[in-house]
Design a binder for these strands. Sequence first.
DNA 1: TTGTTTATTTAACAATGTTAATTATCTTTA
DNA 2: TAAAGATAATTAACATTGTTAAATAAACAA
Lengths: 217, 217
Amino acid sequence: MKDKKVHEQRMKGYFLQATKEILKAEGLKSLSVRNIAEKAGYSYTTMYSYFQDINDLIFLCVHDFYEECNVYVKERTPKREKTITHLKSCVRAYMDFFIQYPGIFDLFFLEKMEDFGNKKAIVDIISSSLNQICEEAWNDCLARNLIKADQIEILKGQVKAIVFGSLLLYLNRRTPSSYTEFINQFNPQLDRIFETGTTISTETNTTVNNSLISIKL
Amino acid sequence: MKDKKVHEQRMKGYFLQATKEILKAEGLKSLSVRNIAEKAGYSYTTMYSYFQDINDLIFLCVHDFYEECNVYVKERTPKREKTITHLKSCVRAYMDFFIQYPGIFDLFFLEKMEDFGNKKAIVDIISSSLNQICEEAWNDCLARNLIKADQIEILKGQVKAIVFGSLLLYLNRRTPSSYTEFINQFNPQLDRIFETGTTISTETNTTVNNSLISIKL
DNA sequence: TTGTTTATTTAACAATGTTAATTATCTTTA
DNA sequence: TAAAGATAATTAACATTGTTAAATAAACAA
């Protein structure tokens, strides 16, 4: 009785792992049932014994990728400096994750909601991921009075919009065309958001490539 | 000899028109060769006599839609007030166009570049469309010294990122869930960009729904 | 009218997601 | 241990996509 459950979980794991690997390496475009099954080591229709359809499978990945992104950011911003600089580092690390895995950006933001089977829970995870992952950093700044309380919502909104706008243009439209250019455009934009609304601006703003990763697309 | 060209243009027109109609009404998802051909009144393979493939056809639409968007903005912002308020109205009208035609947003920003056959010309039209369409408004503000010359590039960058970020989240992730909410979030964000970097801020900022269209998704 | 070029359609193929029928494998129990 | 029954996995098949090649229809020139 228990063996059955164990077996089922193991099988699901194989398919899930295969799907994640393909998504990270090649993106949604080159994902197919036959594709996944081959990597998992089974015939394609076997998938349908463990998942309702391919979307069911795809969107189980969202949870895993969200957690991976969270870890990614935490690992690269360890100090908990409680400064706006630290907050900005978290935001950049969040972006870097998607630059490293454009396929996950696709899945998170470019895929249509209908393809998730309109599952609102999944969309909520995605939509709130940036704020969720940077929550401590925001709270720290607020607690230390580096950000005016009545401005925080609009600040969050601006950061969010600018992050996804920049990612969309860069990853999907190659605008700008190089990673260095991208960072050199994005950083001052991010800096500028915090120029007003922050109580004091003693921290230096960055206009050169100080990204956390050096990978270029 | 000339009849042939005329005929060819007419045929292309039929297919192009059909494609545009489907894109505007239903979006990329429900677009197919057979779909287009049926609307055009021909068998599906006839398309291949006039276009290399379906992407060739799709991306001829980009030119037309860009022009449509330009007209849309111009019609809704007629006065040429030469103020930052006017510039912001242009930006909002540009956004409204895509809110009215989410299928065109899909085509412009969500579609993969490979699907355009990597045609850089098309991507350039898309990427520069916002700045292109709002160019006069920006120049007017600059000429009247409402914007600091050394800030204009970063301002344009911020506006661009915030516009596409907001559209992406709203159209593709239903965040926020209502049009009114969307506008009430977006407007103060846009306002805030112009609070610094603009020489004087005598103009009133808008935080209520003053959008140019009243259609809600 | 006949022959040739052009236009259009029909037939077919490969790749996709999905379902139904079939076979293989494991489990239980006599 | 071996047969019966349940479960797991595969093969076959279908519908939908984009696309190409072959066949037919239409237009036109002599």
